[in-house]
Design a protein around this nucleic acid. Structure first.
Lengths: 191, 191
DNA sequence: CGTATCATGTAACTAGTTACATGATTCA
DNA sequence: TGAATCATGTAACTAGTTACATGATACG
């Protein structure tokens, strides 16, 4: 299962923030999620755990049960939580993939309830921009463009539209639930 | 503009298959496409052109106009076209990103008209599988799941649904146009 | 005339993969 | 007892990036 380069460091840290576990467990957990995010190889997983530990973002405890082989259980530290939150608060670059966005949803949301909304808002802005670009490019595709090219643009545009629709809906639902509605009302001063 | 690792080698080869141009032109062309695919850095673009040339997949001609600085124009060779076609005919692994799929649409379609349909069919199968996985996972999210987790799954599911709908529609339209309709009628023996 | 853009390139680094190595436990 | 799985790790490699270097030409 290839990973599509979503910084493994914070992926692991995020998982450990929800549940202390071993490297092997992390891999199985990610694989259980199917293609939602993807799972890094052991060749990057274990070394990353080592460096996280060296940086005091996680601690390791060897759990040696009588029958099972000993397992190394990693838990997030206070420093680690802070680092995760810092990362989580950073605006997502427009270039980063959908997967990275999903990953932040999945892992970063337990922080600041407002962070979730700003995160969605940010994404909406970026997708809207992308959608506008695509709409324009699709419209003035010259007539030399073959069917494949046309499909590629229409396809991307259709997906952008779907994403935008979902984001709008989700934001509407959320801002109804939360009393913080004022902050989000489309006045995207943050960027 | 980050690239999200869509094998740059075939990306370049594909562009050159449609139009001979310089490294600089390739970059500008990709940038003009916005986030549709993304553009590699010069640091990987130029070295890739060198190796493509070494492998005889492209040839280089120095065009020295009087006033402009001399430009190195790369053209695809017969071997290069064959290599591109071979790559294009290979089934796309489920793990590869949406971008890679779009890229194949964009670049590979000038080959075999049937290839386009099989390409779409393949994608449909993969997305359908992914969608089923997601639908299941979303349904049996335990009640400890926080709102972020729930959103992450619903979001991914919504996108998978949209993609599936588009693919179904596109395939229907195409099979009406083409007389090869029989081959595609959902009998997905290919996999 | 200096700054922006055109145009090409290299070197050092980063982040990941694949392939390999090791050993313990489970289970047919 | 031998194969599958649990569990951890390292080494070599691959594919890309960033930062740097260079020089020419265009333009205000």
């Amino acid at each position: 299962m290839a990973n599509s380069s979503v910084s493994i460091r914070y992926l692991i840290l995020g998982i450990l923030s929800q549940q202390a576990m071993s490297g092997y467990d992390i891999k199985r957990f990610l694989e259980s999620l199917g293609w939602l995010i993807g799972s890094p190889s052991f060749g990057s997983l274990y070394p990353t755990l080592h460096t996280l530990r060296k940086d005091d973002l996680v601690v390791m405890n060897i759990i040696a049960s009588e029958d099972k082989p000993p397992r190394k259980i990693y838990s997030i530290t206070k420093t680690g939580k802070q680092a995760l939150q810092d990362w989580s608060d950073q605006p997502v670059l427009p270039s980063v993939s959908l997967k990275s966005f999903v990953m932040r949803l999945l892992l970063g949301s337990n922080f600041s309830p407002l962070g979730l909304l700003t995160h969605l808002e940010q994404r909406r802005l970026q997708v809207a921009t992308h959608q506008a670009d695509l709409a324009k490019a699709t419209k003035d595709l010259d007539d030399t463009a073959d069917i494949g090219q046309r499909l590629a643009f229409e396809y991307s545009l259709a997906l952008a539209n779907a994403e935008l629709a979902w984001l709008n809906n989700a934001l509407e639902q959320l801002s109804q639930k939360l009393p913080t509605a004022e902050v989000m009302k489309g006045n995207s001063t943050n960027y």
